[in-house]
């Protein structure tokens, strides 16, 4: 299988504090990786660093994405090249119509791929089909981006973008947080619909509940800025049952 993402000894800081302390991870096309871990272990930092959020500083290591040096790319270049971050807290853009925002994004990505911008009619046809998959009311397209959206609407709007942009790598940052069971099912349905042999998913979550719906190939535990444990589906159940204390103790004993 082709390696899509290769992270080597990645170090990163936020406001001067080191949060990632040497992360290693390899993701092949077609795989789903779930990253779990206690609060403050660096999960959100990892996906933000990968997508190029300027609030995080990379201080060491390397990341290859599809053979390219990801860390040398600007955030918008990474996005156009197929790195997608589903935000934990989708940002509000007052006055910016959701329709316009989504079309601009789709056109930017298409342009990068050497495709023409979509006509209004073409875009309407494409998003209308996807709206049904994420069960979003068409009214939401006319409203300002995320402004006044419920928590569930915001997350479903993120999934709509995932489906529209068709990235090679989807980074899902606690997409399940704040969702009721129905919304969770919708979000998981969108992710599973997107999931395919050519792309990969790295999802960050606190709860194994999401993994009942999106079944990962690998589960990793990130603790104190490092991947300390990896396993299959069963690891999530073990963590659910036993918590993280035993992981922490094992790490402490190993030092």
């Amino acid at each position: 299988m082709a390696t899509l993402l290769s992270i080597q000894d990645l170090h990163a800081t936020v406001d001067g504090a080191e949060v990632l302390k040497g992360v290693n991870l390899t993701v092949n096309a077609g795989e789903v990786h779930a990253i779990m871990g206690p609060n403050g272990s660096g999960k959100s930092t990892l996906v933000n660093v990968l997508s190029g959020n300027p609030q995080y500083q990379v201080t060491g290591g390397s990341v290859e994405f599809g053979g390219r040096d990801l860390l040398a790319m600007l955030p918008e270049e990474r996005a156009r090249d197929g790195v997608f971050l589903a935000f934990q807290y989708p940002v509000e853009l007052p006055g910016v119509r959701n329709w316009q925002f989504l079309k601009s994004a789709v056109d930017a990505v298409r342009k990068h791929r050497g495709q023409d911008e979509l006509s209004i009619r073409q875009f309407d046809r494409i998003y209308e089909a996807k709206l049904k998959l994420v069960e979003i009311d068409a009214e939401l397209m006319k409203r300002s981006v995320n402004e006044g959206f419920s928590g569930g609407e915001k997350k479903r709007n993120e999934m709509l973008q995932l489906l529209l942009l068709e990235p090679r790598l989807a980074l899902l940052d606690e997409t399940d947080s704040g969702l009721d069971i129905d919304a969770l099912r919708v979000v998981a349905g969108a992710v599973n619909g997107y999931r395919g042999g050519d792309n990969a998913i790295v999802l960050v979550t606190h709860y194994q509940r999401l993994l009942d719906y999106i079944v990962p190939d690998f589960i990793h535990v990130l603790y104190d800025g490092r991947m300390v444990l990896s396993g299959g589906r069963e690891l999530a159940l073990e963590l659910e049952a036993k918590g993280y204390d035993w992981v922490k103790e094992a790490v402490a004993a190993g030092r």
Partner: peptide
């Protein structure tokens, strides 16, 4: 707000204009 737009592939100039 800027990063949200950039992460969707929109250029910084277009993002500012949009906002």
């Amino acid at each position: 707000q800027l990063f949200y737009c950039l992460q969707r592939g929109i250029s910084e100039e277009d993002a500012r204009h949009m906002i």
